[in-house]
Design a protein around this nucleic acid. Structure first.
Length: 188
DNA sequence: CCACGGATCAGCT
DNA sequence: GCTGATCCGTGGA
């Protein structure tokens, strides 16, 4: 079952927490999300929306539940879920997942996850809440997860925004990216 | 037109 | 811990 779009229509931090434990499905391959980062809006210097609306980032303004896929360092793709009320540009980066289908290999990083699932920029704008979409989300089995938080990775340029605890990970998961998060931990 | 830097990763030290 | 690979998006001239 796909998640309600409303789950992503609020603040990015809330969506980032809720995405932990959800599953991504592409061509019959299935993964379980264990790590996310929130990019909370145009005022967040680490959020691509802070640079203004461009052809690349336009999907961030189109509404919650859509995929924002961009190329980083010339060689890796990163998958995000657009969040917030329509017109408030924010998103959640999917950083790592646990493989549920055989043969997927290591998904412990945003670039690796996209490479393993074959996600590239042609998926930009796809509706992740549409069960018929080539790539979509599904609610996993309902289960309580402990979530640890810490600062986002590689956003040192974002001044005080770099220190905010906008990175979330299933506590103790061996499938997250490094560095691990022994930080704050709380049940949701 | 051109220069610069990045929401990464693998491979090394 | 550090570095290079690799190329698009952006901003300035």
């Amino acid at each position: 079952m796909v998640p309600e779009r409303e789950l992503f229509a609020g603040k990015a931090v809330r969506a980032a927490r809720r995405l932990i434990g959800m599953e991504l499905v592409h061509r019959g391959q299935r993964v379980r999300i264990v790590e996310t980062e929130a990019y909370v809006g145009p005022h967040d210097l680490a959020c691509h929306a802070s640079k203004g609306r461009t052809a690349r980032t336009e999907v961030l303004w189109r509404g919650p539940g859509l995929a924002y896929v961009y190329l980083i360092y010339g060689m890796y793709n990163c998958l995000n879920v657009v969040t917030g009320p329509e017109g408030f540009a924010s998103a959640v980066l999917i950083r790592a997942a646990e493989p549920l289908s055989p043969g997927l290999g290591d998904l412990s990083g945003p670039g690796k996850l996209c490479r393993a699932l074959g996600i590239d920029r042609s998926f930009n704008g796809i509706d992740l809440c549409d069960p018929g979409a080539a790539l979509h989300l599904e609610l996993g089995p309902r289960r309580r997860v402990r979530i640890a938080s810490g600062p986002r990775i590689n956003v040192d340029y974002a001044r005080h925004w770099a220190h905010k605890d906008y990175r979330f990970m299933e506590a103790g998961s061996p499938f997250g990216s490094r560095p691990r998060l022994p930080l704050r931990s709380r049940r949701t």
